[in-house]
Design a protein around this nucleic acid. Structure first.
Length: 418
RNA sequence: CGGGUUGUAGUAUAAUGGUAGUACGCGUGCAUGGGGUGCAUGUAGCCGCGGUUCGAUUCCGCGCAGCCCGACCA
């Protein structure tokens, strides 16, 4: 993409009413814009990142049998009433149409997916199934904060699994757990994201959260370094030792809940009468699980963790572009340098390398460098008088101070191999 | 939802009961061209309503909005 065509601009000073680093950096770099408290637009750069996060999640969900769907945002009152959550789920945004019919915006989708599956699930032969969606969720948080880490609307991947019995739910739950570890590894949060025991429901003693260590996090977790698990502070009183190894030494950390998996059992299948017939002709209740990850929260979390004093340092799989190509030149050599950089840009695009090309003539070198650091693409390539004198371009990784000159003819080949 | 705090230009800030200033941005021109470059010039603002006052951006009240702490968070 040509940077001159990017309608967003970077700004030097963050708005004073944004306290969280993720929002400050993302706004300064032109990834997001705040409309109201907890409500953000995703701009071209930000949407690319969000889409990449979603893509990683989608790939891993598909790999464990997920089937992607898209459910409504507008959910009639009757569905919520059936489970009692019209009254008890206080984050619901409720609204009324002209005809007085009442709805709530989707805060979670058990009340949609469960009756939906009633239309297709009849026999044990139909089980298990694992539909999921990636969609904006609406929750009227009393206090939105921390930039895109706790918004009133946010992107969420929610998968629901349906099983013939508890044993099959337990089996798939472990599969989903492993998929989640893979996802966080790919998103650049591997090694600092812990499976965390948290409060469960009447159907299972615990739920599991995926908590990423992060000073900006709202949760406090206690980590067992022995088996690399954690316990949420909310249940630490009734869980004084590691549930896995019995170790009593915990390390306390602030963390962000980036994912959550939950055994629902019959909590929703029961009120909606979701049953199937087993191989003996008997009617049985379907056992359910649900599995959430918030891509927008993940994006905020990554920014909180992957940055330095100059800006964001995106993990390679979710960077808006792999390469940020900068054209520098003085006036006399502009035409020539631009021709070389244009060629390089074309070649990279032909090879499928995602590249943001800063070909703006009016910007000085310092501004281009500063913006590149702020935006945070993994690889910066500079074409200038200096580099062209060597028949080369300068290659520098965002996460390293070192740079090197690479012959222009070898550059694209080297990039496709890295 | 309780407590606190703040609303001045697109952004960040200053002053003032009597013509609202600075920096960045944006526009124009020239210079510059390896770390948010320089000079000139232009552009744009007091959250809303009510009260006090000859006069309110300033003082008072109410409202709205932002932020912080807390509570809440399938």
């Amino acid at each position: 993409m040509l940077q001159s065509k990017l309608f967003t601009k970077t700004i030097k000073e963050a708005p004073k009413d944004e306290m969280s680093f993720n929002a400050q950096a993302l706004i300064r770099a032109g990834f997001i814009d705040k409309l109201a408290a907890g409500i953000y637009s995703f701009l071209p750069l930000g949407l690319r990142v969000l889409d990449k996060i979603s893509r990683v999640i989608r790939e891993e969900m598909d790999a464990i049998g997920g089937e992607e769907i898209l459910m409504p945002v507008l959910i009639p009152k009757e569905n919520w009433a059936k489970t009692g959550r019209w009254e008890t789920l206080d984050v619901l945004f409720k609204l009324k149409g002209e005809d007085e019919k009442e709805y709530a915006l989707g805060a979670t989708h058990e009340e949609v997916i469960t009756p939906l599956c009633r239309k297709f699930l009849f026999s044990y032969r139909d089980l298990p199934i694992m539909p999921y969606q990636i969609q904006i969720k609406f929750r009227n948080e009393l206090r939105a904060k921390a930039g895109i880490m706790r918004g009133r609307e946010f992107l969420m991947k929610d998968m629901y699994s349906f099983h013939a019995d508890q044993a099959d739910l337990d089996r798939f739950y472990e599969v989903a757990k492993q998929a989640y570890f893979k996802i966080f590894e790919r998103l650049g949060l591997g090694g600092i994201t812990y499976l965390t025991y948290a409060s469960g429901s009447s159907f299972s003693k615990y739920s599991h959260e995926f908590q990423t260590i992060c000073a900006a996090g709202e949760d406090t977790i206690f980590i067992c370094d022995n088996c690399r698990m954690a316990v949420n502070k909310e249940i630490i009183k009734d869980q004084e030792q590691c549930p896995i190894c019995g170790n009593k030494k915990f390390r306390e950390e602030k963390a962000v809940e980036v994912g959550n998996i939950f055994k629902l059992a019959n909590k929703y299948s029961q009120p909606f009468g979701l049953e199937y017939v087993n191989d003996k002709g008997e009617k049985k209740e379907v056992a359910m699980g649900c599995y959430g990850i918030g891509p927008s929260r993940v994006m905020g979390t990554v920014v909180e963790i992957c940055h330095d004093e100059r800006g964001i340092v995106w993990p390679k799989e979710i960077a808006p572009f792999k390469v940020h190509l900068l054209l520098l030149s003085n006036k006399s050599s502009w035409e020539n340098n631009k021709k070389e950089a244009d060629k390089l840009y074309q070649k990279m695009r032909e090879q499928g390398i995602e590249v943001l090309y800063d070909e703006r003539e009016e910007k000085g070198a310092g501004e281009k460098f500063s913006e590149a650091d702020l935006i945070g693409c993994p690889i910066r390539i500079v074409v200038s008088d200096k580099t062209l004198a060597e028949g080369s371009a300068e290659v520098k990784k965002r996460n390293s101070a070192d740079s090197k000159l690479v012959k222009i003819d070898n550059l694209v080949k080297e990039l496709t191999q890295s």
